[in-house]
């Protein structure tokens, strides 16, 4: 059933089932995994806070990004541009008041104390969680047509005029979607598709391609990324794009009505947008129910 079809049967204010169990389960497992992976990843990055392009790269080779310190001053350097980041990056105060010159501060890393080995333990465990959950979700969502029906843009949405309209609506913080909020709008679809089918696979593959054993098994794949240090750089960039997505995602959840949005991702129950004086009847619709 398409969003347009359901929209006609739905009345504003009604509570409907919005997200399937598989979607909800994956969302939270994935959220936890990405949260741990981002923070443990920063722990690992702290062991060598420099990024390079190509196959090799170490302290004597030119880095395109580095976080370092000059005495008490911490800085981030990208290319030739240096930004002082004292207090946040490269030089910051630890909980006990002493100064650390590690790149990322304790509150951004797992564990919150410096341990490359422990960061790696968290990272590789939750990498498996991320990958297995993604495979489960991807198979499930193609099989039950969630991707084709809810995430793929319609031909109408792909018209430049409508894309521009959606961009303007977002800029005005007006979030228009079909089905009283049960369907996704164009930018929403594109960002979810981009995260699920581009960013997450890319971050997983660039991570895998830092493995020397994997490189022996599939050297052609490392070549695709331009060598191990390039793979490491792309991995880091993907991680920051994911962090950016999460920040935007959270802002939009708050703007769209956090209670209703978060409830719909936990219990699946979603109150349709629009005005209604009716009390809350619970209507099970075919959309997104198990």
């Amino acid at each position: 059933m398409t969003a347009e079809e359901t929209a006609e049967e739905l009345t504003p204010g009604e509570i409907v089932k919005r997200h399937r169990l598989s979607t909800r389960l994956w969302h939270w497992i994935n959220a936890l995994a990405i949260f741990v992976l981002l923070m443990s990843g920063l722990s690992i990055f702290n062991a060598h806070p420099r990024l390079y392009w190509g196959s090799y790269g170490a302290n004597n080779d030119p880095a395109w990004l580095q976080i370092d310190n000059e005495g008490q001053r911490g800085y981030l350097q990208i290319g030739d541009t240096q930004i002082t980041t004292t207090g946040v990056l490269g030089s910051w105060e630890q909980p006990d008041g002493s100064r650390s010159t590690r790149a990322f501060p304790y509150w951004a890393t797992i564990p919150g104390f410096y341990s490359l080995a422990t960061g790696r333990l968290w990272h590789f465990f939750f990498a498996w969680v991320l990958v297995l959950a993604w495979i489960f979700y991807a198979i499930r969502s193609f099989a039950n047509r969630h991707v084709q029906r809810d995430l793929a843009p319609t031909r109408d949405e792909l018209k430049p005029r409508n894309i521009w309209q959606d961009i303007k609506d977002h800029a005005r913080l007006r979030f228009v979607s079909e089905g009283h909020g049960t369907a996704y709008n164009f930018l929403q679809k594109m960002s979810y598709l981009g995260v699920i089918f581009v960013l997450i696979p890319l971050v997983v593959l660039t991570g895998l391609n830092m493995s020397p054993t994997w490189n022996a098994i599939a050297p052609w794949m490392l070549d695709m990324f331009g060598g191990r240090q390039s793979a490491r750089s792309i991995h880091f960039i993907c991680a920051f794009l994911l962090a950016g997505f999460i920040a935007l995602h959270l802002v939009l959840v708050v703007l769209a009505g956090p209670y209703n949005e978060i409830r719909s991702m936990i219990t699946g129950r979603f109150r349709l947008s629009g005005e209604s004086a009716e009390p809350e009847p619970v209507v099970e619709t075919a959309k997104e129910t198990e």
């Binding site: 062991a47 060598h48 090799y56 170490a58």
Partner: peptide, 12 residues
């Protein structure tokens, strides 16, 4: 060959 340190750097 390429030598990969656990810290993240590589050298050939």
């Amino acid at each position: 060959t390429r030598h990969d340190c656990v810290e993240g750097w590589s050298a050939i």
